[in-house]
Design a binder for these strands. Sequence first.
DNA 1: TAACAAACGTTATATTATAACACTATGATA
DNA 2: TATCATAGTGTTATAATATAACGTTTGTTA
Lengths: 132, 132
Amino acid sequence: MPQTQILSRNQKIVLDIIEKAKGPLKAYSILFNVQKKGINAPQQIYRALDKLIEMGKIHKIESKNAFVACRSSDCEISKATAFSICESCEMVDEISDAKLSKYLSGFNYRKGMKFKRFNLEFFGICKKCKKD
Amino acid sequence: MPQTQILSRNQKIVLDIIEKAKGPLKAYSILFNVQKKGINAPQQIYRALDKLIEMGKIHKIESKNAFVACRSSDCEISKATAFSICESCEMVDEISDAKLSKYLSGFNYRKGMKFKRFNLEFFGICKKCKKD
DNA sequence: TAACAAACGTTATATTATAACACTATGATA
DNA sequence: TATCATAGTGTTATAATATAACGTTTGTTA
Ligand SMILES: [Zn+2]
Ligand SMILES: [Zn+2]
Ligand SMILES: [Zn+2]
Ligand SMILES: [Zn+2]
């Protein structure tokens, strides 16, 4: 298992644009932004996104169908993700909190199964939006 | 604020089919199943779904774009939802755990905002699927 | 009854995501 | 070297999910 993943051309292009973005990006907005680089079809975007998610380089914000770069080192390959989402400006922050992560990773629902993975999305109004 | 919400005709039809389902239902599968009752267009389904979600009668499973009936009395108007999802058979269970709910409702991210709502999705393989 | 809000029905369209197929590059292996 | 497998690419087409916009109907309330 290689420490540093080698990215393909398209994967690099897609990761690059997501990393540079200030907020979550939608697949088709990525597509429109990379057409000058010779990527023409949704498939090319979705394939890159899938691999980047597998590698833990990006995450999908399920409630928004959008993608953000991983800013956290302790979210090992996307097995434990948590986000803070502003319902006004759409800002998304990855939450990196060891206690929270530990609490949820260890959570066992009595009548249920053993969990392999979780995704948590918090919603509210961010400080910046509250000032308005 | 009325204790018992009065549902419209379409809302009743949609809620009824979701409540009777064994697993999460997709909007278009709901649509196909109610066409005999005179509902013909996606809009009618989505409008009912939106209202039912507002009322806390159903929840959306974001990672699946599907809908389940609320089985929990203490998830007050969908402000605090948690689910257990089998990655093999697609089964979804609403998690009703007071400690978990309290812990997350009280969670405050130091550099962030005050949260009004959260949604948590756990993934794994359910007991039934593990036997195979 | 007049006014308003909520729900309804309908047509059209936007947005998000996948299927399918042929092709290319790479590296392992026999 | 020939061959095989794996991963990535490019392309066309289509499926699946969701919303816009408009006018009508229904139910509540003043
Ligand atoms: Zn991360
Ligand atoms: Zn904001
Ligand atoms: Zn519930
Ligand atoms: Zn299962």
